[in-house]
Amino acid sequence: MNYTFDFSVLLGNFGPLFEGLQTTLLLALGANVLGLTFGFVVCLMAMASLWFLRLPAKLFIEFFRCTPVLIQVVWFFYCVPILFNVFFDPITMGILALGLNLIAFNAEAYRAGIQAVPKEHHDACVALGLGPWNKTVHVIFPQALRNAIPVLMTNGITILQQSALVAIVAVADLMYAGKMLATDTYRPLEVFTAVAVIYFLMSLPISQVVTFLERRQDASVER
């Protein structure tokens, strides 16, 4: 190896990285708030029996599942302002772009959670005289949510990683701050290593929680 790593360049430069990190966390948090709430709404629409609710929701989900996030972000930042003549500040735009993607994926996670509730439980609800409302609120949704939580959390960390993509449209997130620092210091390898470590350390605890939850759910598989 001919390259000599010199991590000392980072020493005085944690300030900009920290600011970038704050933006990244804001993006991920905002996108997750959108994804968790509206994802549920879109899921309900996609499962509705009325076609005018179901069809738009299905289209929405398939669009975001079947196109690269990178293109979604670019498209959102450049096309939406031209088409609809709206532009918010870059961070809000970033949250919206990532949030829409997460809404689609979380809607699927919720749907899978609902469908994983055994058919026998629907029968048991009839036998107990529970009507559609009571069945949904007290039996199906609580179980569906428990089923969906690991996937929702995984989607949540995925969007944290993918938030790095908004750096290409000049949102000053962690990735963007890293890029600037790399150019300033001529030390891209050290800087991007540090950036990767920061992303890793933010995601690791959450992925550990997911592993724990999945193990616990496997242990209590219940009909």
Partner: peptide
């Protein structure tokens, strides 16, 4: 509501305690 049924696969609701399972229908319905 005058007919009760017990199934092969128990069908207890896993997110509710034994008490919760038993009182759900009497209380809500």
């Amino acid at each position: 509501s005058k007919v009760g049924m017990v199934f092969q696969h128990y069908t207890l609701f896993p997110h509710l305690s034994v008490l919760g399972n038993m009182t759900l229908s009497p209380v809500k319905v």
